Simulated assay, not measured.
Amino acid sequence: MRVEIWSDIACPWCYIGKARFEKGLAGFAHRDGVEVVHRSFELDPGRAKGDTVQVTDMLAAKYGRGPDEVRAMEEHVATQARSEGLGYRSRGRDHGSTFDIHRLLHLAKARGRQNELLDLAYRANFAEERSVYDEETLVRLAVEAGLAETEVREVLADPDAYAGAVRDDEREASELGANGVPFFVLDRRLGISGGQPAEVFTQALEQAWGSRTVTMVGGGEVCDADGACAVPDTASDTASDTASGTASAQATAHS
């Protein structure tokens, strides 16, 4: 069975959702028969290379919030990440174009090192003092993941290298109806939107393994196609996070 995951390195719910999915996969009896493929989705496709801003400034502009509110938003996400054993810096992170990162992830896929590079990029972006929007940092991460430095630099120097693969992934996401990430497609039978709890992923894997029906499971936190990441405004919203993880299944199509 193949699981395809559309995500963006700039999306905190993708970072958290990947960890939750992997926990759910670990609880699946047929996990050794599952192939996981990561696919590209840019949350800010119009942003030029080199145009970086502080995440807090981007969130303030997008949501029209003050500094205290933005810090509270980031602390909420940080709490969710830490509950999954993930590091998360709620201040001092950059936001920029992820197109080059996606191109390198396709190179890494071709070399069998995609998951390694994705994990390193997520950790650098969300937990460490390293900006994934700096080209030299990106080169070092790719080399850490096991890619050849010469090949990495050749790809980064050629804007057309793997560009078509990135655009194909994004076009396919649109055709499948994905308007936010993370977006999981299990064997082209089941779609899951958002960073669901691990047990939801385990149940979905079991359903996809034996089902011929395409079903959409919604309700998890996502970053949408406009780059907005769902964050509750109030304590009552925060309390509802657990309830939102209990997703309702809606039949959308048949294979």
Rank of each mutant, 00 (worst) to 15 (best):
E69Q: 15
E4H: 04
K109S: 10
V34P: 06
F201A: 02
S90K: 03
A78Y: 07
G164P: 04
R71E: 14
L25E: 05
H76A: 12
S174C: 00
H95C: 12
L117G: 11
K109N: 01
T98F: 09
E144C: 06
V222F: 06
R93D: 05
R123A: 11
F41M: 10
K62D: 06
M216D: 14
E35M: 02
R113D: 03
F99L: 14
A148K: 13
C229Q: 10
V152A: 03
A145V: 04
V77S: 09
C223Q: 15
D100T: 08
R130Q: 08
R89L: 07
E4S: 07
G33R: 13
S240A: 15
L43M: 04
M58K: 12
G66M: 13
L107P: 14
V36I: 13
F184M: 05
S131T: 12
C229P: 00
Q114P: 05
D51N: 09
R89E: 01
A235V: 13
V181K: 09
S211N: 13
D224F: 05
F183A: 07
G96Y: 07
A124R: 09
A235S: 12
F99H: 08
A78K: 14
A127V: 04
F28M: 11
G96S: 11
R130F: 00
D237L: 13
Y162I: 02
A145H: 11
A243N: 07
C229M: 08
F184S: 03
R89C: 05
E84V: 01
R71K: 15
F183I: 06
G227V: 08
A235F: 13
G92L: 01
S97Y: 03
S211M: 04
R20S: 01
E154S: 14
M216T: 12
A157C: 03
A48Q: 12
R65Q: 15
G46D: 06
D119H: 09
I192Y: 05
C11Y: 10
L117T: 05
E172Q: 06
A225L: 09
S236R: 14
G195C: 11
T52H: 06
A60S: 15
I101W: 06
R212P: 00
A10H: 07
H254T: 14
D158G: 02
L104F: 08
Y88C: 01
L138R: 06
T79R: 15
P159N: 01
R93V: 07
H106I: 05
L59K: 06
V222E: 09
